[in-house]
Amino acid sequence: MAAGGDHGSPDSYRSPLASRYASPEMCFVFSDRYKFRTWRQLWLWLAEAEQTLGLPITDEQIQEMKSNLENIDFKMAAEEEKRLRHDVMAHVHTFGHCCPKAAGIIHLGATSCYVGDNTDLIILRNALDLLLPKLARVISRLADFAKERASLPTLGFTHFQPAQLTTVGKRCCLWIQDLCMDLQNLKRVRDDLRFRGVKGTTGTQASFLQLFEGDDHKVEQLDKMVTEKAGFKRAFIITGQTYTRKVDIEVLSVLASLGASVHKICTDIRLLANLKEMEEPFEKQQIGSSAMPYKRNPMRSERCCSLARHLMTLVMDPLQTASVQWFERTLDDSANRRICLAEAFLTADTILNTLQNISEGLVVYPKVIERRIRQELPFMATENIIMAMVKAGGSRQDCHEKIRVLSQQAASVVKQEGGDNDLIERIQVDAYFSPIHSQLDHLLDPSSFTGRASQQVQRFLEEEVYPLLKPYESVMKVKAELCL
């Protein structure tokens, strides 16, 4: 049975990233139509530049190519590739079939990587351009969430054990800070992308030097003109047959890092959902379990974690691919890159769409948070109580021993009897502590235990987050809708 299948058929496997999760716009960027249309555009740009620099290419040939950029006979191309065992030459023939007058000058002087690699770089750039505003929107939604809850005390956790208090907004800023680093890295790697350009079979530009009869300047002009037509500021000066596969490492490393950030955020949300302090959106008709109707599973956060793990592992592909590119190139890269580049971007696209949807509907339960604080705060307040007693004339050592005994009794009630923490009640009825009984409410005010959390939130948002989001103001209103 021949390899390949009808990918629109229910009898043929289709990647869930495309069929179930990723956005239509990201799927289109990695589609065959987008790819092969870009090949034709690159052939047109090459012909236009070659004509401008004096090669015998007519206006009629150029116009014929322009008129057929979208006229792609995919069936013919597939048949040609089956016959020739070469995808680029299959599309040269297919393009030439609908451009008979231009057929002889299509791909003039070029090698397969002229269309293959340059198209990949265009796709990487455009895919990054799709991700950047999506990530900015996630940051914006979380920034709104953090600002609104900047002063809401909550129990902090280290080692997932109760620690000092923080605020809900401050905790959210930990998430935002990681995503801001990801946004900066995505922008950097996007701006650092260079075009492969017009380089020939081993990167020496020998074929173009021959076409222009040894004119170095025209060869350099050709490279520059096509690079500018493709919208790049610069091209690699040095290439082998391909652009260095280190570029793929750079791009997928940034995406993998984004995956790590999203995994951490969504894990926190899942843990908070278990504590009943916070939940992701839950639709009115949504079913959490087929057997347990009360369940409210954090399905979206779980999906993000599941896909983020996949995204983090994909960076190993370009690392290994770059390491086995012998001399000017081997074909070890080809099949692998067809999979890992598309999957990385479709996965990143999915987790950003999902995280935006989550961040637009996060639900906080202040009463649950308050109750958990009441359970733990008495123990945390013991040092403040000791200091207040010393100020009232008591002995630190005597007070410490009193607190120690009462704390152990209260802990026994919590752990052995399943009761509430009654340390404060014990202190309130103990005559030894009568000098500070009137101060206990103040000493137990949760806001006095959150330090500068709310001020940190305000400063972080104003100095770091809002300036970073400013270039994306025009796209901030787009909502994230999930079908599944």
Rank of each mutant, 00 (worst) to 15 (best):
A103G: 11
W326C: 05
Q285A: 08
L443I: 13
D215R: 12
A410G: 07
F460I: 04
L155S: 00
N274C: 12
T167L: 00
S19M: 05
I105S: 15
W45H: 12
D420Q: 05
A18G: 15
I424A: 14
I265K: 07
C99Y: 04
M89S: 08
D120N: 07
D11S: 06
L179S: 06
D445K: 09
A110Q: 02
L319D: 02
F160M: 06
Q221T: 10
V247W: 09
L132I: 13
D430T: 11
F195W: 08
G259Q: 00
Q61N: 07
S447G: 12
L124F: 06
G5H: 07
W326A: 05
E343F: 00
D120H: 08
L271Q: 07
F195Y: 13
V475W: 14
I72N: 11
G231P: 04
R245G: 00
I373M: 11
D420T: 05
H107P: 00
I436E: 04
V138C: 08
G259E: 00
R329L: 03
S112E: 01
E383K: 01
S140V: 13
A90L: 00
E463L: 12
T350L: 13
S289H: 01
R14M: 15
Y365H: 12
F236P: 00
S454F: 13
R37Q: 15
V390N: 06
A127Y: 00
F449Q: 04
Q184M: 11
Q51A: 07
L42Y: 02
G231A: 10
C266I: 02
R137I: 13
S438R: 07
Y432Q: 07
Q221R: 12
T201A: 03
A453L: 02
L319S: 01
A410K: 07
Q241A: 00
F95K: 00
I358V: 10
R396N: 00
Q241K: 03
M278Q: 04
I427N: 02
G214A: 13
K35H: 13
L271N: 03
C98Y: 15
T111R: 03
I62E: 01
R14I: 13
H400I: 05
V368S: 04
K147F: 09
A230N: 04
N274Y: 07
S257C: 09
G451T: 02
K477S: 12
P293L: 01
Q286Y: 00
L484F: 15
G5A: 10
L211D: 05
P100I: 09
H159E: 03
R371V: 02
C113Y: 05
L130H: 08
R404K: 14
E283C: 12
S9F: 15
R337D: 03
R329W: 00
H263L: 04
H107M: 06
A78N: 12
A3H: 13
Y294I: 01
V324F: 07
C113G: 15
H310W: 06
T242G: 05
R85Y: 10
I57M: 05
A146Q: 01
D191I: 12
K477V: 15
H7M: 15
E60D: 08
N274E: 08
E48M: 07
T321P: 03
D120M: 06
H93Y: 14
D32T: 12
R452V: 10
V168D: 00
F449I: 03
D317S: 09
G231N: 09
I424L: 12
H442K: 06
H310M: 08
V414R: 05
C483Y: 06
I139E: 04
K218E: 12
Q456N: 05
Q210Y: 00
T347W: 04
E25V: 10
I427L: 13
K101V: 11
H263K: 03
T167C: 01
S23W: 07
I369V: 12
K246H: 06
L44D: 04
I403T: 08
R14Y: 15
Y243R: 03
D268N: 13
L135M: 15
V475I: 13
Q409W: 06
L311Y: 01
G5N: 14
K284A: 09
Q409C: 09
R234Q: 09
A136F: 13
S151A: 13
K75E: 10
K295S: 02
L121V: 13
G8D: 15
I339L: 11
M278P: 01
F345D: 03
G214Y: 11
L152N: 08
K66Q: 14
A22Y: 10
A78M: 11
